[in-house]
Design a protein around this nucleic acid. Structure first.
Length: 421
RNA sequence: GGAGAGGUGCCUGAGUGGAUUAAAGGGAUGGUUUCGAAAACCAUUGUGAAGAAAUUCACCGUGAGUUCGAAUCUCACUCUCUCCGCCA
């Protein structure tokens, strides 16, 4: 959500943003509703002032007759104000509905484009492995080693279902531990967060109402969050933090649920795109300052790179184009890991900042040392997501005999250095 | 699942129809005092909206209702606590 004052002053920027982001939004209509709402609010306030005065006179009235006369006068006013209140409520609801749909303005450095095809590579790391034998994809590797069961997975959990077994299960746990170690050493507060959340939590982070069909809704009206960003951001909803506590960094671990309705035909095989997975997320709240947001955005991006580097996975970082940005995102980097079987990089991390888009919805403020109250800024990035990261991990480290070498960084968390039949 | 109690400001907590939005205490900030501090005393101390300003309006968990008038009465929702039952 943006500041209505900003929208009034710069409707052109909103129009530009919705064009660039390919998100339909009619600013003129919002401004029209805003104008009418404001006018009516003024009228109602004036009427209230009159009513408040009359009430005082009733209270101080000396005779019963004087009271009755004033009350009779009030009655007429009341009829009008009832109508106006109803009209105002309608306008106010429409205003609030529209305000949740206003796209945030992308940063100047974000290239214009339609889809992820227009994202721009900004750096690369690691050597792409060359194999002198016919390679297997992660599905074949996992089946041969009996560490992921897709058949029983879909029998039990349906389409995109899976069981991680044996070393695959152990490696995931090792990866969580490894990632949490790195992030907590950097001052991130570890959290295990709820996945089952209320509607407000999803609305506050900007997933609702826009992406309604991408989240699961439970029978009791609760929702399954697609990332622990949702509960962590909501953790401080309605609070006023202290400036000296910022930046506030969290690393949250949770199950993540996604309906994947928009991608029925995509990545139907394997563990790339699944309905349910585990993720360690980085979430940061910082002061109301663009430079600080940018600095921290680079920092959390580097953190993710450090995690992949430790896992010896070749990757590149892309700057997402405007068409690939979400409603609230100002700028986003995706980190994509090398997948040998596909001969391309595939997304494993997504790092973005929002300014006060989320914190305005969630009402997360802080008091500056000068005593001023300001909205905080928020940003987030993946730490690691399993099982997706197993794809580059298994494929890049496969050996001619079908075994898989485990990167050194994980050895201390595991009792083995390779996966063999 | 059953029974009950409750949600008031930065905190504790009073307030069952009208008083500068809210008693009292604590905290915080400023001042007096002091070599400095503590203590004591005095003062200040919510948020949002409209306006150049005076000022006005809204807000006591959320939403509706009753009333000329609601923190206070009614209903729904929500959250917290206590007890019983069930349970990893």
């Amino acid at each position: 959500m943006l500041d209505i004052k900003f929208i009034r002053d710069y409707p052109g920027l909103i129009k530009e943003a919705s064009r660039k982001k390919k998100i339909k939004f009619d600013v003129e209509y919002l401004l029209d509703v805003d104008r009418k709402r404001k006018e009516l609010m003024k009228l109602i306030e004036e009427l209230n002032a009159i009513k408040n005065q009359a009430n005082k006179r009733i209270q101080l009235a000396e005779s019963e007759e004087a009271r009755k006369t004033i009350i009779a006068q009030m009655r007429e006013l009341d009829v009008n104000s009832d109508m106006q209140n109803k009209e105002f409520k309608k306008l106010d609801e429409e205003f609030k509905r529209l305000m949740l749909l206003v796209p945030n303005i992308p940063d100047e450095s974000v290239p214009e484009g339609d889809s992820d095809l227009d994202n721009v590579e900004i750096r690369k790391w690691g050597k792409i492995p060359e194999f002198n034998f016919p390679i297997k994809d992660h599905i074949e590797l996992a089946k041969d080693l009996d560490i992921i069961d897709f058949e029983r997975g879909s029998e039990v959990a349906g389409f995109r279902g899976y069981f991680l077994k044996k070393q695959a299960a152990l490696i995931c746990m090792a990866i969580w531990h490894y990632t949490t170690d790195i992030l907590s050493k950097k001052g991130f507060i570890p959290m295990i967060t709820p996945s089952l959340v209320k509607e407000e939590a999803l609305r506050g982070t900007g997933y609702l109402p826009q992406q309604e069909d991408e989240v699961y809704r439970a029978t009791d009206g609760m929702y399954l969050a697609g990332t622990s960003e949702v509960p962590i951001m909501s953790y401080h909803a309605g609070e006023t933090l202290k400036e000296e506590d910022l930046p506030l960094k969290y690393t949250g671990f949770s199950s993540c649920f996604r309906t994947e309705v928009g991608s029925y035909g995509k990545d139907t095989q394997g563990i790339f795109r699944v309905h349910e997975f585990m993720k360690i997320e980085q979430v940061v709240l910082c002061e109301n300052n663009k430079e600080e947001s940018i600095r921290l955005h680079e920092e959390i991006t580097r953190n993710a790179e450090e995690i992949l580097q430790g896992l010896e996975i070749p990757y590149h970082v892309v700057l997402n184009c405007t068409g690939d940005l979400g409603l609230g995102q100002v700028k986003k980097y995706d980190i994509e890991a090398w997948v040998p079987s596909q001969k391309k990089y595939r997304e494993t991390h997504s790092s973005s900042y929002f300014f006060d888009f989320q914190t305005r919805r969630l009402n997360i403020k802080y008091k500056t040392n000068q005593g001023e109250t300001k909205l905080a800024y928020s940003l987030n990035n993946t730490g690691i997501a399993t099982p997706r990261v197993l794809i580059p991990l298994l494929e890049n480290n496969q050996q001619k005999d079908g075994s898989i070498k485990i990167p050194k960084a994980l050895h201390k968390y595991l009792g083995f250095k390779e996966i063999k039949k």
